[in-house]
Design a binder for these strands. Structure first.
Lengths: 198, 198
DNA sequence: CATCAATGTTACTGATGGGTAACATTGCTT
DNA sequence: AAGCAATGTTACCCATCAGTAACATTGATG
């Protein structure tokens, strides 16, 4: 049944999982619905994923990888300029918040839906968020800010808050100010004195 | 079966719902489990709540009411002093974030678990969060800040971000800085010139 | 053409979940 | 004691869901 021009079932399943898990919630979507929407069936799904939990973990891992490629984009667009990289990331994240249909961050949502410490998805989520925080601190430091950890955490909280609040106060809520607020931070946060290296 | 000294079944159910829904998630907890943990049974539960969805709405309404009593506390403790009220609220919220077992805001979590626009819980959540935002703006204005909406939204995002990030980066993460960051905001945000009224 | 791996199909299990019916019990009130 | 409302008990119905077994089909490769 392999029609040319079509992705293999595993990829189709992951793609559909992205849409359905994100839109309706992980617990609200059954594996059968995913298989059907992917043009395949439960049996094939279970040949590629050991369990629903593993499918969820794979789904989140794909999202995390994609999100982390943003950092590479930033480095490529503004090589050597940490502050511009920060602003670039900020722009992209704000833009996403504006387009994401009000469901916020899929990783954060999954963490809320799956509180069991042992769930395979939790490791993916925690590692992703922690890496993001560390990278943010590193960029803030590289950009010469005086208190990089504090500034990075503030931006982190603003971004997380903007995405989660989409669901309760909507796109017109406080999240709409994310870009302006965070850029204000970058503008006014204290920096090291620029010592002329020449 | 009404033993003296015990709360009536409705209250016991709501209390148990608070614990279980919050700890394990709404979709993860069945009504039967709640009834049993409340020392009663499904039939009695359904005599007090038309459906699980209504029980969820009632559970969240209770939480919202309790959270909103914080504003009254603040007004009583610091009457006429909007800035001190803000700092008081901030302290209480930070303290909660430190003690809440890492599951963050039950209202925000519920919004993530229940994306259906028609769910009776959504109205409770949205109204609660919007009221909170409005009250925050009002307090910031009353405290004489120059840009009350902007300042209020920034605090709102920090608080929401701190609570949601508990689940992915833990209590030692960026959320641990919530109090310091938000107080810094109150310290440095621009205010109207204090015109002597005397 | 023969083989073999990947996929499809159907049907099933066992568990759980929301919700209800019918009837028994309790305890307060008069 | 009688009555009544709230509660308890048991047994259901029906849907859904994760996961599996057994078997049929396809398609590319040799």
């Amino acid at each position: 049944m392999k029609r040319k021009g079509e992705l293999p079932p595993r990829e189709r399943i992951l793609q559909v999982a992205r849409e359905l898990f994100y839109r309706d919630g992980i617990r609200a979507v059954g594996v059968e619905a995913i298989a059907a929407a992917a043009g395949t069936n439960k049996m094939t799904l279970y040949r590629h994923f050991a369990s629903k939990d593993e499918l969820v973990a794979a789904y989140l891992k794909g999202l995390a990888a994609e999100a982390e490629s943003l950092w590479d984009d930033a480095r490529i667009k503004h090589p050597g300029d940490a502050e511009q990289q920060l602003r670039y990331l900020l722009r992209r994240v704000s833009q996403f918040a504006d387009e994401c249909s009000g469901r916020g961050c899929a990783l954060a949502n999954a963490a809320i839906e799956l509180p069991e410490r042992a769930h395979p998805a939790r490791k993916v989520i925690e590692e992703h968020k922690n890496r993001g925080r560390e990278r943010l601190v590193a960029l803030c430091r590289e950009a010469g800010y005086l208190h990089p950890e504090s500034l990075a955490d503030e931006m982190f909280l603003l971004v997380e808050g903007a995405r989660v609040s989409l669901q309760s106060v909507g796109r017109e809520g406080p999240g709409a100010r994310l870009f302006a607020l965070a850029e204000g931070l970058l503008d006014t946060a204290p920096r090291k004195k620029r010592l002329k290296t020449a």
